[in-house]
């Protein structure tokens, strides 16, 4: 499944190395319209200025976690429709359940590979394909 190369993606992680990894892997998927944020709060303000087509966020961040960000996005009428992929090392069943209940679109466990990233993006962005 091919992806819409013009889609705007916001990636959120407090590890700059992970942001760089994500950006590079997205570039290999021909997704170059990417904006970065180091925490949930910064990401939320970024999205309010201009809603993206896809959000890819880490969970374990402070002070606003990825789960907090997800809940804020789902409670925001302007943003609630945006696909949200959680990319995290938190792999306990309860984490996945809570994220799902909060409205996450898909869930990727770190470490992940490029194929998984591509498949999950394609699954949550069917209209973009």
């Amino acid at each position: 499944m091919s992806l819409n190369k013009n889609m705007r993606v916001v990636i959120v992680d407090d590890y700059t190395t992970m942001l760089r990894i994500l950006r590079n892997l997205l570039r290999q998927l021909d997704l170059n319209n990417v904006e970065e944020a180091n925490d949930g709060d910064t990401a939320y303000h970024l999205m309010q200025k201009s809603p993206p087509d896809l959000i890819i966020s880490d969970w374990n961040m402070a002070p606003v976690t990825g789960l907090d960000l997800l809940r804020k996005v789902r409670a925001d009428a302007k943003l609630k429709h945006i696909p949200f992929i959680m990319v995290t090392a938190e792999s306990k069943t309860e984490n996945v359940i809570i994220a799902k209940q909060a409205g996450v679109s898909n869930y990727i466990v770190k470490p992940f590979n490029a194929d998984t990233l591509r498949a999950k993006i394609a699954s949550v962005c069917p209209a973009m394909a």
Partner: peptide, 14 residues
Amino acid sequence: AVTNIYEASAFQDI
């Protein structure tokens, strides 16, 4: 090979 390097680099985050 480059993709493999990017993927493996995630070890630092973990």
